[in-house]
Amino acid sequence: MLCDLGLHCFASAWTMIFGASYIMWYFDRASHFLANIASSVAWLLSTSILWGVAAGVMHVTRTGGNCAGHPIISRCRQSLTVEALGWSEFGICLLAMFATCFWIYATRKISKTATDSAARLV
């Protein structure tokens, strides 16, 4: 149980530190090597894998089912909450990664359409 919580703490620190770094690089308009779209997709992929592994390990090692007969504040409900937060973060990371990939695809399609229409005007 302690190792599972350590993995969740590492995943949350990883997400917070690198997420804050990407936000600072975006507002700073830095041309840093890690401040491009491809690295953010790679970071989102690795972060979603990290959160998926953490939530999956918590699901496998967690005792109890839905904690129906347990008191409101119990170890079963606490571990269920940590697992739910892990799966939520996993889903948010995947959603952000797919949205970023779709944004890249749409931007390239729009720029290709704009260059094709500009070539026709000449």
Score class of each variant (00 low, 15 high):
25 W>N: 12
25 W>G: 12
26 Y>A: 15
27 F>E: 14
27 F>Y: 10
28 D>C: 04
29 R>N: 15
30 A>P: 00
30 A>C: 03
31 S>Q: 14
31 S>K: 13
32 H>E: 09
32 H>W: 10
32 H>I: 13
33 F>Y: 00
33 F>C: 00
34 L>P: 01
34 L>R: 01
35 A>W: 09
35 A>H: 09
38 A>I: 11
39 S>Q: 13
40 S>Y: 13
40 S>C: 12
41 V>A: 07
42 A>S: 12
42 A>I: 06
43 W>P: 04
48 S>M: 05
49 I>S: 13
50 L>N: 04
50 L>T: 03
50 L>Q: 02
51 W>D: 03
53 V>R: 02
53 V>I: 06
55 A>I: 12
56 G>Q: 11
56 G>N: 11
59 H>R: 08
60 V>Q: 04
62 R>K: 13
62 R>W: 02
62 R>F: 04
62 R>S: 06
65 G>C: 03
66 N>G: 03
66 N>F: 07
68 A>P: 00
68 A>G: 00
69 G>C: 07
69 G>P: 02
70 H>P: 00
71 P>I: 15
71 P>K: 15
71 P>H: 13
71 P>L: 14
72 I>L: 15
73 I>T: 14
74 S>M: 10
75 R>W: 07
75 R>G: 05
75 R>C: 06
77 R>I: 05
77 R>M: 08
78 Q>K: 07
78 Q>I: 08
79 S>M: 15
79 S>Q: 15
80 L>G: 01
81 T>W: 03
82 V>C: 13
83 E>V: 07
84 A>T: 05
84 A>N: 02
84 A>I: 05
85 L>Q: 12
87 W>Y: 14
88 S>R: 14
88 S>Y: 11
89 E>W: 08
89 E>N: 09
89 E>T: 05
